[in-house]
Amino acid sequence: MMITLRKLPLAVAVAAGVMSAQAMAVDFHGYARSGIGWTGSGGEQQCFQTTGAQSKYRLGNECETYAELKLGQEVWKEGDKSFYFDTNVAYSVAQQNDWEATDPAFREANVQGKNLIEWLPGSTIWAGKRFYQRHDVHMIDFYYWDISGPGAGLENIDVGFGKLSLAATRSSEAGGSSSFASNNIYDYTNETANDVFDVRLAQMEINPGGTLELGVDYGRANLRDNYRLVDGASKDGWLFTAEHTQSVLKGFNKFVVQYATDSMTSQGKGLSQGSGVAFDNEKFAYNINNNGHMLRILDHGAISMGDNWDMMYVGMYQDINWDNDNGTKWWTVGIRPMYKWTPIMSTVMEIGYDNVESQRTGDKNNQYKITLAQQWQAGDSIWSRPAIRVFATYAKWDEKWGYDYTGNADNNANFGKAVPADFNGGSFGRGDSDEWTFGAQMEIWW
């Protein structure tokens, strides 16, 4: 008995050590931004985005507190085989008060198993909700290839000249389909599951310092038995992507060409959309029709120009041509140079221009935006974070068209359509004006 009692403290210590080691193995990653800002004409900070554009130049032009908190852990490992559990909870508030209630979004919860298939060394099996191989332009917060959501897949299969990845994910639309009631009355209240099937071939070395990635995505509306879509709904579509990445000037340049059809055009990033119906009456549900095509040509990157200068840049042309004439032509160009006074202090400027032409009206909206920021960051790279910055932003815009969301679809035949700025004596778009804002912001990723 005495021997047992003497061994007990040692056993407890060993158990505590094991539990401590396991606790220390938890990975904590994430992203956050928050700050305070004012508008020159009075009131809180207002942000500037061109009507019809899918993004905006973000430096000194973000008006919310946003965070993603990721917890993950390698829960099992034997040799080169392992299982990893990953989670991500995100939230966004308007940064107007101390207490701002919000419903967090559970954006990731997945398990990734590496090297589980003997004859596919280096590959990963995964299932669950996941940010899946996302491609974006940081300076405009624009995701041009992103099929994230609940799904499953097999990735990084070594095929000799590259890595092959296969995945299936889902994005549902509210009110996407109906069941038959009586007297030809349909009640569009059932969600429609939109499935996306993704095939990618990446890391193909085609020139010194250059790699090529090719991808095909097929999206479709997956209806339940005895349900139907509204007439004209976009049932399926394709997205084709080619991306060349070149190492240059201690950074990279990415050149991207994408072509999409029908349900893959509205978001243009790989998620299927077009079966959703915002109104019970299918007579007024025309606005979900996105049959047509999209072409996107994009070049972006980040480079170092000597010891003291870094720069991000982007140039993009996007043409969404829809059968219902509600598409757009959008082109944007911008730069973000950074001058480093010390390894932790810099001055950053961002200059961006957007131009969006309405397919329906032929009119154009444009905006110039310039931001000057003094910044303190954890390192001497344009990617170094955390960063604390004080900024001043000036924007000038001239908008000739907007979307008509007055009333509702039952009493407005133009609901959701592009109209000229002065349509029917109204005021659509943001008109011709300018404004400036100033404030302070922190940004961090880890």
Rank of each mutant, 00 (worst) to 15 (best):
K369I: 00
G122S: 08
R107H: 02
I382L: 14
F83V: 06
R385S: 14
G30A: 04
K56E: 14
T39I: 03
T102P: 15
G416V: 13
D146Y: 12
Q46H: 12
K364N: 03
L239F: 08
N287S: 11
A16G: 10
D422N: 14
V111M: 10
F197L: 12
F48S: 14
D225Y: 10
V390L: 08
V18G: 08
Q375H: 11
G362V: 06
A105T: 06
Q273K: 11
M345L: 02
G301A: 00
A387V: 04
G43S: 00
K396N: 07
H29Q: 10
D231A: 15
D195A: 05
T39S: 03
G79C: 11
H29N: 02
Q359R: 11
N281Y: 15
E443K: 13
L59R: 15
G276C: 13
K114R: 08
N226K: 04
T332A: 01
M316K: 10
Y313D: 08
N61D: 07
G306V: 06
P386Q: 04
I36V: 11
Y144F: 14
L271M: 09
P337A: 08
V89L: 08
H300N: 03
N97K: 11
Q73R: 06
R228H: 04
T241N: 11
Y403D: 11
T265P: 02
A25T: 01
D422V: 12
M305K: 01
Y31H: 06
M349V: 13
D236E: 09
K364R: 07
S182G: 08
A202T: 06
E100G: 01
E173D: 11
T4A: 14
S148Y: 14
E68K: 05
K250M: 03
Q49L: 12
H300L: 14
Y31S: 07
N321Y: 06
Y286N: 09
E443D: 06
M338K: 11
R430C: 05
K129R: 01
W38C: 07
E205G: 07
M2I: 09
S123Y: 11
P420S: 08
F106C: 14
W341R: 01
D98E: 03
V419G: 15
K56N: 13
N190D: 05
F28I: 04
S433I: 08
D86G: 04
P337S: 04
V333L: 12
W401R: 01
M349I: 08
V196G: 11
R170S: 11
S41N: 01
V256G: 06
D422Y: 12
Q96R: 09
K235E: 08
K417N: 08
L59I: 12
T406N: 09
F85L: 07
T261A: 00
F438V: 15
Y143H: 14
W119L: 15
G149S: 08
S20C: 14
M264L: 11
I382S: 12
K364M: 03
W38R: 04
D310E: 11
K340N: 04
G431V: 12
G268C: 02
A193S: 10
H300R: 02
G153S: 00
R296H: 00
F131I: 01
N190Y: 02
S34P: 02
M311L: 09
V256F: 12
N194D: 10
V75L: 12
L71M: 12
N365I: 07
Q22R: 03
Q318H: 01
N287D: 10
P150L: 06
A13T: 08
P208A: 04
A21G: 04
D363N: 11
G232R: 11
R130C: 01
F252V: 09
N88K: 07
W331L: 04
A174S: 13
G162S: 06
L154M: 09
P104S: 11
G232S: 05
E350G: 00
A302T: 04
T211R: 14
M338L: 07
W322C: 04
N355I: 11
A16S: 03
R296C: 00
N88I: 03
A11T: 01
M312K: 05
W446L: 13
D80Y: 05
G175R: 01
V93F: 13
T342K: 08
Q377P: 07
Q359P: 12
A193V: 05
Q133P: 15
D280E: 09
N281K: 01
N412I: 02
W76C: 09
F391C: 00
M305L: 13
F438C: 15
T347P: 08
A21T: 05
M264R: 09
A23T: 03
R360C: 00
E282K: 05
K269I: 04
N190H: 07
S177P: 07
M312I: 11
T347S: 07
A440D: 00
E74D: 11
G43D: 00
V14F: 05
Y188H: 03
G425V: 15
M349T: 02
A15E: 07
D141N: 06
G407C: 06
A67V: 03
A193T: 03
V12A: 04
A373V: 01
D354Y: 13
I206V: 14
L120P: 15
V314L: 06
V14I: 02
Q45H: 12
Q375K: 13
W322S: 03
E78K: 10
S55C: 02
L214Q: 01
G42D: 07
T169I: 06
L249P: 05
G301D: 00
F415C: 13
T406P: 08
A13P: 05
L223M: 08
G37V: 09
N289S: 07
L223F: 12
M1L: 13
V18L: 05
K400T: 07
D187A: 11
V333F: 05
W76S: 10
T342M: 00
K396R: 01
S234A: 07
M312R: 09
V248D: 01
K340E: 00
G153D: 00
G270E: 03
V248G: 13
N291K: 10
S358Y: 11
F131L: 09
A221P: 03
T406A: 07
T39A: 04
V356L: 12
N184D: 01
S171Y: 13
A421D: 12
G52V: 11
M349R: 12
G237S: 00
R220H: 02
N207T: 10
R389C: 01
L239V: 07
A413E: 12
G306S: 04
R134H: 03
D432Y: 14
S384P: 15
C63G: 14
V26L: 05
I288N: 04
S384T: 09
I382T: 06
D404A: 08
N115Y: 11
Q45E: 02
N411K: 07
E435D: 13
Q318E: 01
N414I: 14
D86A: 12
I297S: 04
S263T: 06
T361N: 13
N326I: 03
K254N: 09
S34Y: 05
E243A: 11
D404G: 00
T51N: 11
L295R: 07
E44A: 08
G292V: 10
I36N: 07
M338R: 12
N207H: 13
T332P: 07
P121Q: 15
S266A: 10
K250R: 05
S178F: 01
D231V: 05
V248L: 07
P337Q: 06
N183Y: 14
M338V: 12
T437N: 15
P386T: 10
P104Q: 13
F161L: 12
I3N: 10
S172Y: 06
G113C: 09
T124A: 15
G274S: 01
V159I: 13
N61T: 14
M1I: 08
L295Q: 01
C47S: 13
G315S: 00
G352D: 01
N97D: 14
E118K: 12
G35C: 03
E213D: 06
N308T: 04
Q441P: 15
H138R: 03
I125L: 15
P121S: 05
V89G: 09
V159L: 14
G251C: 07
R336H: 00
N411D: 07
Q246L: 12
Q49R: 02
V333A: 07
G210S: 02
N326K: 07
G334D: 00
N253T: 11
N321T: 06
N290S: 04
N326T: 06
D198E: 09
A127S: 10
N183K: 06
C63W: 15
G175V: 12
A94S: 09
R107S: 12
S346I: 02
H300D: 07
F391L: 06
R220S: 07
G219S: 00
G429C: 11
D27V: 06
G402A: 11
G79S: 14
N115K: 13
D432E: 14
A387D: 10
G268S: 02
M345I: 05
G274V: 05
D398N: 08
